[in-house]
Nucleic acid binder design. Structure first.
Lengths: 311, 311
DNA sequence: GCATCAGTGTAGCTTCCCTTAAGAGTTGGT
DNA sequence: ACCAACTCTTAAGGGAAGCTACACTGATGC
């Protein structure tokens, strides 16, 4: 008893003759007859009776035919289930992000998607080296990742939605002599003790560029990945650091100054597997991320940074 | 997308590897892999992802796999539906009967099956010639039919449940001279005007036998099939008639006397297609019919008839 | 009674699906 | 760091299942 046999039985019941059922199923009457015989073999009571030269269902056959409707319904539902999953407006969308992007973007997302009928979010912060971002697309629909201009591009296996091209400024403690300048050169900052990310993490390449431009080794006093912690340590006089201009929350005792002479910018991108955007919910979240990026890179930029950006 | 492919997908989702799914389905991993590839062809988004050397479901695959559960459930329900139909205690049982059997048996049936959980009855009276009874089994689960002892037996295509072997008595109007006798011979009744059934109907053969035993043609005054009408006409002096001893309701102005010298009995049988008794509801109704028959042929027999039967 | 129609068997072919065998990628141990 | 074991995939071949074509039986209607 399989789906095909049940469909034949149902058509026979509804159309009332083997020939009509055969036409509906686009096969010959012989095929219908053979399928009916096979079905009958698996059932101990007659499903059909001859009525004149027509063949009609017995009550048992009618009982089975109505059960067949359930089978066809379930199959149709299955066939549609993928489309429904793809088109579900309030589907669950998982978004992974490194810390500063998470802090900057997620509040925007949560506010924009608070309305019922919006995609539901599953957020997860992930602190990984640059090469660690693409694999995260296995477990998350969208991965907010960052890489420096001159670093290796993302592999071809992931799709990229650019969000920000964010300047990296030098973070100085308030009152530091260098705060007097509108912008800083590698030479200006080469003597200072530095607070940097751990090896392999994106911003490290710019630190190396500063070192090269200044022609000397930098003193790497501390290795801290988390910018909120970095800001506190800078404010406390632990050293100076590179900090993103837009995505790090301003610290009252920390001043940002643009760095000239080296290309100090990072890309903040949304990575995702190409097929994930087939889901309207995922596409919707990507759209809101772009909106949030525009907002972050203009209105939300602190006044100091905005003025510096024009310089 | 068919049931087999969906089952493979579901097993993969639950067991987490192609090999395990293959073992569960008693096939080789290669077969599973090929089925998955076929299924994937019909869906625009990936259903599976490699995870190390294992293959697991994507969210879309999980959505489809859960829809697959519905398909399997519906198929299982279909496979059971015939058994349920067969075993349904309160199933609908259609019973056809000729008039006098209907009047005698149906009240018993309706009383016996009034309790909830009993078979539900669909009753229909049918006034047909003897050869018309077997075809009625196409449309009814049980057909109450009658035939005379010496008439042709029922065809082999129908099953027979004997219910009554009922004497046919001579119905006389109260006050008629012949009521003085305890039993009558063909010679006693050959002179009377007769009320008989229409040609082809079961009791006609006994009339012919009476005629033959008496050695003369009977005067067939009226042709009436319905015994209630016959009884009224007999009471009004329209003639005498053969009437069944147990299944005809006694009429106050009609007296029954047994007929000797000819074999005047009829069989009242329940006819049915053999497969119909596979249904417990039908079997149950047949049982109640047997009980009713025992009751009809003893307790319900009118005193006159009972006394006559002993003679 | 013959022509027509409906359904069923049979032969043969196509199609599908499974198995076997080989290959590619991953994991874990020595 | 290589090698062995494991997992999945692909290709080729064989067997089963289903369909078509065609002949046949039984029912219907002029």
């Amino acid at each position: 008893m399989d789906e095909r046999q049940l469909r034949v039985l149902r058509e026979l019941g509804e159309l009332g003759s083997v020939t009509a059922a055969a036409e509906a199923l686009r096969v010959t009457p012989s095929a219908v007859s053979q399928q009916l015989r096979l079905l009958q073999r698996s059932v101990p009571v007659p499903l059909t009776v001859r009525e004149g030269r027509r063949l009609v269902l017995t009550p048992a056959g009618q009982a089975l035919a109505s059960a067949a409707i359930g089978v066809e319904t379930a199959l149709a539902r299955a066939r549609r289930s993928v489309d429904e999953f793809v088109g579900q407006a309030d589907g669950l969308v998982s978004v992974a992000a490194f810390h500063s992007a998470a802090a900057a973007f997620w509040p925007h997302l949560l506010r924009a998607l608070a309305a019922p009928g919006s995609p539901r979010l599953a957020l997860a912060d992930e602190d990984v080296a640059q090469s660690g971002f693409p694999p995260l697309t296995r477990d998350h629909d969208i991965v907010l990742a960052h890489r420096l201009d001159h670093a290796a591009p993302w592999p071809r296996t992931v799709s990229v939605t650019p969000l920000l091209h964010e300047p990296l400024d030098v973070a100085l403690p308030a009152g530091h002599p260098l705060t007097a300048r509108a912008s800083l050169t590698p030479g200006d900052v080469a003597e200072e003790p530095w607070i940097t990310v751990h090896d392999g993490f994106p911003l490290m390449a710019t630190i190396d560029a500063v070192s090269a431009a200044a022609g000397r080794r930098l003193h790497l006093a501390h290795r801290i990945n988390e910018f909120a912690v970095v800001a506190e340590v800078v404010a406390a006089g632990g050293g100076i650091a590179l900090m993103p201009r837009w995505t790090a929350r301003p610290h009252p005792q920390v001043v940002l100054r643009p760095l000239t002479g080296v290309h100090a910018r990072r890309h903040v991108d949304a990575l995702h597997r190409p097929e994930r955007t087939a889901r309207t919910a995922v596409e919707s979240v990507l759209g809101h991320l772009r909106t949030a990026a525009a907002s972050i890179s203009s209105q939300n930029a602190p006044p100091v940074a905005r003025r510096a950006a024009r310089a």
